[in-house]
Design a protein around this nucleic acid. Sequence first.
RNA 1: GGACCGGUAGCUCAGCUGGAUAGAGCAGCUGCCUUCUAAGCAGCAGGCCAUUGGUUCGAAUCCAAUCCGGUUCACCA
Length: 604
Amino acid sequence: MLALFSENVKMNSVVAQIKATTVTSIQQLYGVELNIEQVLVNATKPEFEGDYTVVLFAFVKQLKKSPDALGQELGTALVADHPELFSGFNVIKGFLNLSIANTYWLDFLQSIQGKEGFGLHEPRNQTVMVEYSSPNTNKPLHLGHLRNNFLGWSIAEILKANGYKVAKTCIVNDRGIHICKSMIAWQRYGNGATPQSNGMKGDHFVGDYYVKFNDAYKAEVAELVAGGMDSALAEKEAPIMKATQAMLLDWEAGKPEVMELWRNMNGWVYNGFDATYKRIGSDFDKTYYESNTYLLGKDLVASGIEKQVFYQKEDSSVWIDLTADGLDEKLVQRKDGTSVYITQDIGLAVHKNQEFHADQSIYVVGDEQNYHFKVLKLICQKLGIPAADGIFHLSYGMVELPTGKMKSREGTVVDADDLVDAMISIAQQKTEELGKVKDFSAEELVVLYDTIGLGALKFFLLRVDPKKKMIFNPEESIDFHGFTGPFIQYTHARIKSILRKQENTEWQNSALGGDLLPLEMALAKQQEIFPSVLEEAATEHDPSKIAIYVFELAKTFNTFYNQLSIGNAETEAKKILRLQLAALTAQILKTGMSLLGIQVPERM
RNA sequence: GGACCGGUAGCUCAGCUGGAUAGAGCAGCUGCCUUCUAAGCAGCAGGCCAUUGGUUCGAAUCCAAUCCGGUUCACCA
């Protein structure tokens, strides 16, 4: 039934109707049954007359017709049989250009008049888990985490808009040798300091000790090497490293004072993370901690051996042979019986599935783990774990600086909190320069700067294809003109300003009529495709599809706005039409931006 | 070395399930605020779509090879 609904949505779009009517007309004309997928419909190039174009080459052979004759016959039939849809056609070199009837656009506008949530799909009975963010509790979030968080949050919203139930989860990497490093450093150099006593955010506070560890470690290694030790050996023998390894063992043994230190320091970090998450709008339905989940999956090893998916070597380590799948042999359990990363992930996958019974599970993780997730999915499938086929790695590229990768050792990491601060203060500065919001209260201004600054940042990170690595130039900062968040926000505010000027709201329910001017039609045409864009963004797992769409809609509106008067239109009928077009534009911009996690202000 | 990802305008990116003369934004240059918000609009300029070959009515898009850049192939997570 839900699949049916989605079909209906498709059936309703102009493009889908063109395809369907083409299939029937060809059937009637030539008695040939085409598959609907064979029909290719594109937007007509601006230099030709028409709105949508059917590419005829695909079936000339099958129909044994010349493209021109076929175009003429098909065009004639389509216009004759569907006057409510087509108003005319022309054929140029194998392309059938169709003009969509005025009434189609008017009916379209009329059909969604006064309705909220245009483009959103009916609920379907499917649950999707989205795991994102996945921080380490030894340092604050940076620019790369922001891309992760924005992507994860956005894809969750996009799925919801497509009718899925969504569970957002987060796995916190809160244990292991790297966590012990900052603990050791705090023990040695902290003198009992706390974030409160230092007036710092907890995650930054702990992150500083992680840096201190590395400095001390480097110094110790250098000293040992100076004393004549081989550098590889020095790295193992450095006292601070030995102490850290001892601490990890103590942690695993549950030694009370280590546990207490660990809880304290992690608590500081969580306070810091909470503040950042709140600011950037990330939230989770469920947070998992690796300290609780790292033992999961051990029982799966035994059953995997039983199922002969895994095999055991003489040293009793356990492996899976994936060479038949073009991959390598992969260890799933060490010879000492402890499990490895992949095994924990399999265990967590099973665990999460028992909790949420999701049909799909999306992992938002950087592309350096492409291989890991390929293996994870494959093993889950071989083990027959429920919904293994629904595992999807939403892989995204690194965010790089013009100078190359961010490296904490070289101090080139762009800190998330700093960046957000910077964006907001730029928003403030630009807003003040323009001087349009002098009557805003101090509180309203704070909200506005936040909205614009974060909007610019989120849009910047979401507007490119996730799988591509992207370059961020802190010097040039993020633009507020052109293909940017503020441009869309501005367009929205502008529309709202016009609508506010209307003294009554009758136009909202008034019937529409008359011929559409090209700019009016262009806007309606653009609006009409919003539902299919939403669907595409979900199936492709790609928020940038929405960012691009929303930008193009805003551009189309701005051209329309510049050429045509809305509030003072030539006639009452035109005024009603344009107000409705403007209001729908605002609504779509708002919905689209909200799926990117971006607010749109009423005024700016 | 194997696998995977990328290479499109000076810069950042769309377009990639084959379709008409390859598109945006930024930066550069021209115009447009006494009329609904100029964070805007209109225009100019900017291209051997990494290279070579193939597939066909048609290739930025598909295939092969090559060149560049990146990731990965841990008893780390």
